[in-house]
Amino acid sequence: MKHLFYFSFFLISFGVSAQDLLPDVALKTLDGTNTSLSEASATQSLTVISLWATWCVPCIKELDAISEVYQDWQDETNVSLIAVSIDDARTVKRVKPMINGKGWDYTILLDTNNDVKRALGAATVPLTILVKDGVIVYRHSGYAPGAEDELYEEILAQAD
């Protein structure tokens, strides 16, 4: 146990200087086509990736809140948002009707066996990351109302 903490500390301190490349993990589109995280985010220089689930109330609040201002964000910074659902077989069938029922304009990808969640080390959702040219420049987990404003400030800073 002591070793564990020692090494964690040691590696975490190293980790800060590690490169933050976006892991290249396979996942599926809503139509069932194979794609990967890097492929999906390659079309734009700036991409927000949000890990969410249909059963996660704060995730939906976050995506609802961004949805209200998403058009403005896109117009001003050309940012795009990929909402990666970590719903597994139990709830994944609710993803498609829910996103349309909500009227979200995001690119939706499915991570049904949580490979992306594991690769990003997300213990909980929502996890929101900002990717610039394949490098993770900002990450935040959890959602409190107003966190989308902080995210947008970060997007503006990176967009310049």
Partner: peptide
């Protein structure tokens, strides 16, 4: 077996 319908503003499954 599952079946669904989805368009902007309305989804059912």
């Amino acid at each position: 077996a599952n079946i669904g319908f989805s368009k902007k503003g309305l989804g059912a499954s």
